[in-house]
Amino acid sequence: MTYEDKLARFNAHIDGGGKVEASDFMPDDYRRGVLKFIEMHANSEIMGALPERECLPQAPTLLRKMSLAAKIQDEVGHAQLLYRVAEDLGKSRSAMYEDLLAGKSKFHNVFHYPVQHWGDVAIIGWLIDGAALVTQAALLDSSYAPYTRVLKRICSEEQLHLRHGEHITLMLASGTESQRDLFQDALSRWWLPIIHFFGPRSNVEKDLLLRWKVKTRTNEDLRQEFLDRYVPKVLELGFMFPSPVPVESTGHWIVKDQDIDWAPLEAVKKNRGPETTRRLAARRDVYDRHRWVREVLAAPFTYAA
């Protein structure tokens, strides 16, 4: 069978709703695209642990500290699952790690921003994890089957994180004026990055990941689902959105394209976000200091003679 024949069969398989396993034939562009996508997801999980870790010392009670630490552990666990799935597509974990630290691969925009106080923990846990859950739940039906299997576990843990984040939000929202101010201040800083999180409008004609059903829905579709689900909940608690302010229209909460300032996202994509350099340096520092652990564990154990 020629490569063209295999490609035609692959396309027909995908069009018919077929799934792909790591050992199956797949076009080079499919392999590269899926690898890059999962690698970016894995990078985001491990980089996403950092902003919340920075907030740990500010936890108001010991219980909050322990539950946030458990959530951070989950995020690192997600990275482990995802790197393992990506490895089976032909790139070693150490190569992925080196590329991340060298700024050659990407991680999600929201993790390039600073955290200031406990209000940020509420925003990250509720709205950012809420946004992540909308995108990840849409991927449960991805054509790359090994990815969907780890996503099942990731999504169930994200559900818990969402509840955890909402719990913190509700405590602040029903607390003193200064507690409410914490949430409002964090919302004002995070709203634009959250809108960016879903990315600009998808180019359906050119997006190979959509063509091959690795991604199943467009960026704007996912953003719309998030807005419809979360905007009313935030308004109900009496908080206010900064620009781009969502407006209600024909049963949906709309943010107009022309109201979105995309410049900060463009900077983040070039690894020039406000915290990019410092976070990557923090990750590099941990990676270097833990090198001896990796080396000890990788060496086969032998008793001294």
Partner: peptide, 23 residues
């Protein structure tokens, strides 16, 4: 089957699996 881990030996693989899949 619930997933995969990479490890130098079975003992380490079990420890990683415990942390990854049975928290």
């Amino acid at each position: 089957h619930c997933g995969t881990v990479s490890a130098p030996d079975a003992e380490m693989a079990l420890l990683e699996a415990k942390e990854c899949f049975t928290r």
